Simulated scan of single mutants.
Amino acid sequence: MGTDRQNGSLYTNITGKVATVEFGHPASNSFVIEMLERFADEIHKLSDNDTISVIVLKSEGDRAFCGGASFDELVAISNLEEGKVFFSGFAKVINAMRECKKVIVGRVQGKTVGGGVGLAAACDYVFASEAASIRLSELSIGIAPLVIAPAVARKIGTAALCEMSLAPTEWKSAYWAQEKGLFSKVFDDIKELDKELDFFADKLSDYNPDALAEWKAVLWEGTSHWDTLLTERAAITGKLVLSEFTKNALSKFKK
């Protein structure tokens, strides 16, 4: 399912009852809009696939897990509609993961920024490496983590979200993320992580798929309004990105 590298790549591999979805992009595994659309579609498709009961979400390579939104596309936003469409990409992915009938297990092997933190938060269980530090950098470029905030707060609470987002240049360690509830398990090396992750996903996929689906629905209770909420938040972010302040911040950042 790969495309040319500029648009990133997305592959799904099914082994037994476990589907592994792997995304990649040369720019620290960040997401361009087209890739977010494909990603959301893929999660919806797997949700309806009766042959699987667990999804493992991972990114390419052994460095960054996800650099968030594509910087080049962010800089190129020139009107409100483009801004809303761009930030709706992450809204669609988070909502697809939330509505998905399968349990989603995340594999976070490295640094994770912005939308990538939202992605990890939308997983139901997360294996991380010691190198998986996290950062919400949005305020430093003139926007705010509005779209991903509900998903992140659901995992770590408002106080930790506040602490993290108001210090947008500060990295939080993988152990901080585990203590706050974003990561379920942290390993000091990737080899050990992958061994444990495979074992966990296989075991999970042997449980009653109907029980897993019913239980996942309960775990996400009270979030059905996110369909509207996250899209509204995307429109606000789209407006922020067009402000003079943000344009200046982005051009400085680019240099």
Rank of each mutant, 00 (worst) to 15 (best):
W176T: 10
W176E: 12
W176R: 09
W176P: 06
W176M: 07
A177V: 13
A177G: 15
A177Y: 13
A177I: 12
Q178W: 08
Q178K: 15
Q178S: 06
Q178M: 15
E179F: 02
E179M: 06
E179K: 13
K180N: 10
K180R: 15
K180L: 05
K180A: 14
G181N: 07
G181W: 10
G181P: 12
L182G: 06
L182M: 12
L182Q: 09
F183N: 08
S184D: 15
S184H: 13
S184P: 03
S184V: 05
K185Q: 14
K185M: 12
K185L: 14
V186E: 06
V186S: 06
V186T: 09
V186I: 06
V186A: 05
V186N: 06
F187L: 08
F187M: 04
F187T: 12
F187G: 09
D188E: 14
D188A: 10
D188S: 15
D188G: 12
D189T: 08
D189I: 05
D189G: 03
D189M: 08
D189K: 12
D189E: 15
I190E: 14
I190W: 02
I190N: 06
I190A: 09
K191G: 13
K191D: 12
K191Q: 13
K191L: 08
E192K: 15
L193N: 13
D194H: 11
D194A: 05
D194R: 14
D194V: 04
K195P: 00
K195V: 08
E196Q: 14
E196G: 09
E196R: 12
E196C: 10
E196P: 07
E196M: 10
L197G: 04
L197P: 08
L197F: 07
L197R: 09
L197T: 08
L197N: 02
D198M: 09
D198Q: 12
D198V: 04
F199P: 02
F199V: 11
F200C: 06
F200Y: 15
F200I: 03
F200V: 07
A201G: 07
A201L: 08
A201I: 02
D202W: 03
D202Q: 13
D202I: 00
D202M: 05
D202N: 14
K203F: 05
K203I: 00
K203G: 06
K203W: 08
K203D: 06
K203L: 07
L204K: 03
L204P: 03
L204G: 02
S205V: 02
S205Y: 05
S205L: 03
S205W: 04
D206R: 05
D206V: 01
D206K: 07
D206F: 01
D206C: 04
Y207C: 01
N208C: 06
N208H: 01
P209L: 01
P209A: 02
P209W: 02
D210L: 02
D210R: 02
D210F: 03
D210M: 02
D210Y: 00
D210V: 00
D210E: 11
A211Y: 01
A211T: 00
A211I: 01
A211G: 03
